[in-house]
Write a protein that binds this DNA or RNA. Structure first.
Length: 588
RNA sequence: GCACUUGUAGCUCAACUGGAUAGAGCGUCUGACUACGGAUCAGAAGGUUCCAGGUUCAACUCCUGGCAGGUGCACCA
């Protein structure tokens, strides 16, 4: 067991011995912010003391009296207002590192109670190019899936693609009247986009076109064979595009169930909500109104206008009888519950949909009060251009994801050519791919997901600072040592152990032990930026070690000890980057 | 108007259940150097954490009230 976990368990037992009625789930052991205080600390005793009007230092003393950690710690002390600090024995630290070398663990423990987690992300639209708007959902969702999986949870990723809706009326009419077959052959998505834009403009100018488009939609919805065939072909063409992009990004889905998949369920969802008295008719539409169960301020079905609270209903059926977004989401929820019995469902979308999800979740709770599933909207902010407005091309169009990835690789290739002209072209291209794609991902994951960020090629590809190239470089420097070692015939001595003496060695080692805390934090709050910050710190600590502690030039047994430390650092860096969906490269 | 959200160094961003002296990069200034990969490292300067109250042993973090930006608010998803 990891020393921090063992400490935590024993601490909780000791607290129970002193305060039998205490809730010890909040009694957690964390790494010390500043290692001068110790290696691990708990600040939970102060909170417990406060709730009981006890003297916090006295409580800490009492708990310490019941706590035997002499096999793990060289020292414990009570500091400040009632912090309990733990100083790990050097041999415990060293054995833990050695355990990682031997592949027994990588500084984290799998979840004791694995959960089934459905993650809904990316959700591109059929017949439209994937653009920057899809990047955050795709990359964030993929990273969350990777982190949950690593901790042993049963993850189901589901791409809820937009394959149904009013836009197909125009697409179908366009397909029949203005399709350029040759253009469809060379670039299907561009051609679909063209006919959609053209018809959309035509419909605005010409009522009869709009009517014709509506008729096509009605035919599709009624199951017209010709229209269904065209619709299926549009989906297939789009799926090719999605597959190409996801392939480049290294993103995989367990399921791709578009909106249309839930069509057969929509009617019964509406009926059930009506029967249960949750939804009712209003202005021809079927809506869910407030049930007054929460304070007005927190009620997603109320809104204040001119000092008065007005209804802000959630529509589940339009006055024309068609279902809408909320209905599909409810049907989707129902399907997921039936099919996978998840403990948790995560929706990764942009922040503008907060109200929508609050409403959907609220309707769901009223509809299925007995279901325990945890539903969570993990939202994110916008990607902005230099001007502080949503990121667009110079001409004002949305930036296509494929173009963006191309440019990332091209720019990265330029740098590789400058810095590593000696490598052959295939290798240089491959490095450029890893660094380019990795940089786009890292820039996206590094900021707090809820804040908007400014897209910058220069920053994301910078060789210094909290960027993918910096981390990848740190990794290649480690790999380089091992290449050099092999050239010189240097190997780790059989049975070698790790002995940490230098301050930079110790600091690096302790950071390695914290990997698990970061993973758990990431999963708890769905914030991959925790991992970014951790890896950046790790790379910085490694750089200092690298500068001040010679490895190959050291005498045995120090050389083997340091080689092992390098090896574990590389493992953690690689694993951490993998959680972010970023590949590594041996050379740069 | 109401809700959500953001406001931290000149700029871009961090800050782990409320926790110990608020940290990085860029930019500015200074240093290390034929280097286990310099795509590096070390150091300096730079802060009333938007403002005003409150809770607490302890507040960037929680509460109340302002100010400023972003987003959303009935038949688009």
């Amino acid at each position: 067991m990891l020393p921090s976990k063992a400490l935590e368990q024993r601490l909780q037992t000791a607290v129970l011995a002193v305060l039998p009625e205490a809730d010890v789930t909040t009694v957690l052991v964390r790494p010390c912010q500043d290692t001068k205080f110790g290696d691990y600390q708990t600040s939970a005793l102060m909170a417990l003391a406060k709730a009981r009007k006890m003297n916090p230092r006295q409580l800490a003393t009492d708990v310490l009296a019941k706590l035997d950690v002499s096999d793990l710690c060289a020292k414990t002390d009570i500091a400040g207002a009632g912090f309990l600090n733990f100083f790990l024995k050097p041999e415990v630290l060293q054995d833990t590192l050695l355990g990682a070398v031997q592949g027994k663990h990588l500084f984290f423990a799998k979840a004791e109670q694995p959960k089934t987690v459905v993650i809904d992300f990316s959700s591109p639209n059929v017949a439209k190019p994937m653009h920057v708007g899809h990047i955050r959902s795709t990359i964030l969702g993929d990273s969350l899936a990777r982190a949950f999986r690593l901790l042993g949870h049963n993850v189901i990723t589901d791409n809820h693609i937009g394959d149904w809706g009013t836009q197909f009326g125009m697409l179908l009419l366009g397909w029949k009247t203005m399709l350029d077959k040759a253009a469809l052959e060379t670039d299907p998505i561009a051609e679909l986009e063209r006919i959609y834009k053209q018809l959309s403009a035509d419909c605005k100018a010409d009522e009869s076109k709009l009517e014709a488009a509506k008729q096509e939609l009605v035919k599709l919805q009624a199951g017209d064979e010709e229209n269904l065939g065209i619709w299926r072909e549009m989906i297939a063409l789009s799926q090719n595009q999605f597959d190409t992009i996801y392939g480049r990004l290294g993103v995989k889905f367990d399921h791709v169930l578009g909106e249309s998949f839930y069509n057969p369920r929509l009617k019964s969802v509406v009926e059930e909500l009506k029967t249960k008295g949750i939804a009712k008719e209003s202005d021809g539409a079927i809506c869910v109104f407030s049930d007054g169960s929460v304070p007005q301020k927190e009620d997603p079905f109320l809104i204040q206008r001119d000092g008065e609270w007005n209804a802000n209903p959630c529509l589940i059926q339009k006055s024309d009888g068609a279902a809408n977004y909320a209905t599909t989401d409810l049907a989707t929820l129902e399907y997921r519950l039936e099919t996978w019995s998840p403990d948790k469902i995560i929706y990764v979308t942009d922040g503008r949909q907060q109200l929508h999800f609050r409403q959907v979740f609220s309707v769901f709770r009223r509809w299925r009060p007995e279901v325990k599933v945890q539903v969570e909207h993990v939202w994110f902010g916008a990607i902005l251009g230099d001007d502080g407005k949503p990121f667009k091309t110079r001409s004002g169009d949305t930036v296509k994801l494929s173009d963006l990835l191309d440019e990332a690789e091209e720019r990265s290739f330029k740098t590789v050519n400058e810095k590593s002209a000696d490598l052959d072209e295939v290798t240089r291209k491959e490095i450029a791919r890893v660094v380019g794609i990795g940089s786009v991902k890292y820039q996206d994951l590094m900021p707090n997901r809820q804040s908007d960020y400014v897209f910058s090629w220069d920053k994301m590809l910078a060789l210094n600072g909290n960027t993918a190239p910096y981390l990848l470089y740190a990794y290649t420097r480690i790999r380089s040592i091992f290449r050099k070692a092999a050239e010189q015939g240097v190997v780790v001595a059989p049975g070698a152990t790790i002995h940490l003496k230098a301050a930079d060695e110790l600091a690096l080692a302790k950071q390695l032990l914290n990997f698990g805390f970061v993973l758990e934090g990431l999963v708890d709050e769905c914030r991959p930026n925790y991992m970014c910050n951790y890896l950046y710190d790790l790379a910085g600590l490694y750089a200092r070690f690298f500068e001040n502690c010679p490895v190959l030039k050291a005498e045995e047994p120090e050389r083997s000890s340091r080689l092992l430390l390098c090896e574990v650092t590389a493992k953690v860096l690689k694993q951490g980057l993998e959680v972010l969906g970023i590949e590594t490269t041996e050379k740069m």
